[in-house]
Design a protein around this nucleic acid. Sequence first.
DNA 1: ATGGTGGCACCGCCA
Length: 265
Amino acid sequence: MHQCNKDIFTVATYNVNSIRSRLHIVIPWLLENKPSVLCMQETKVKDDAFATEEFTRIGYNIFFRGSGGYNGVAIASIDAPLEVLHGFPVNSEESDRIIITRFPLVTIINIYVPQGREKDSPQFAYKLAWFSRFEKMLKEHYISSESIIVCGDINVAPDAIDVHNPVRLLGHVCFNPEVWDVFEKWKQWGLTDVFRMFHPGESGEFSFYDYRTYDAVKKSIGWRIDHILATAPVLEKAIDCWIDVQPRLKEKPSDHTPVIAKFVL
DNA sequence: ATGGTGGCACCGCCA
């Protein structure tokens, strides 16, 4: 290996489930792992209450948008981006679910896809429509020959090995043919699941464990719904991708845990 | 077990 560390670009995605309740995990985790970019979801904090200084004093730029109790996304980055966009580019709708940072060598799109509540609810219809809106955005604003990373809490377990019990869970809002179909359209456009590329066929690797399930982590009753997706030019520069179990071992952990990918850009 | 826990904001909503 004759690759210097400075050429390694590390991207992580972490649904923090309230940034205020997770600073004791996020800040030490950034200091220890030094990712180039950390994408966060469900920050659950108003912009004027965001702990900006906690990030800037450890050398990170921080960009965020949120209105309080629900949703909210943020990106922390070591290098200053060329551009930061909030929401769908045309009208900035859903700015508490999409934040885009453009860097010289790669564009990072951080998303928090609606969970969908129940299959027969308006929220599930909204989820499916959200996938279509995002696909439209990709096609209108980007080309898959560009270097683009899409990451976040996508609220889809793509395959049977991405849930603990595929038979019982079939039909769940995060595990059913309709969400697979709309997610597949993103993949057809040119996005690939980086974790799955490095761990083909590997089951039991989960990024989310429901708080309501007793001993979920110990019993491995989880879901892989947080993803790092990449277009071909950046995918071929990927060197590793994994789910980090460490933040789960801390006091008061999030119900999600970070997914990390490394690229030699 | 058709519940459960956790976070926010309020006395319920969302995951």
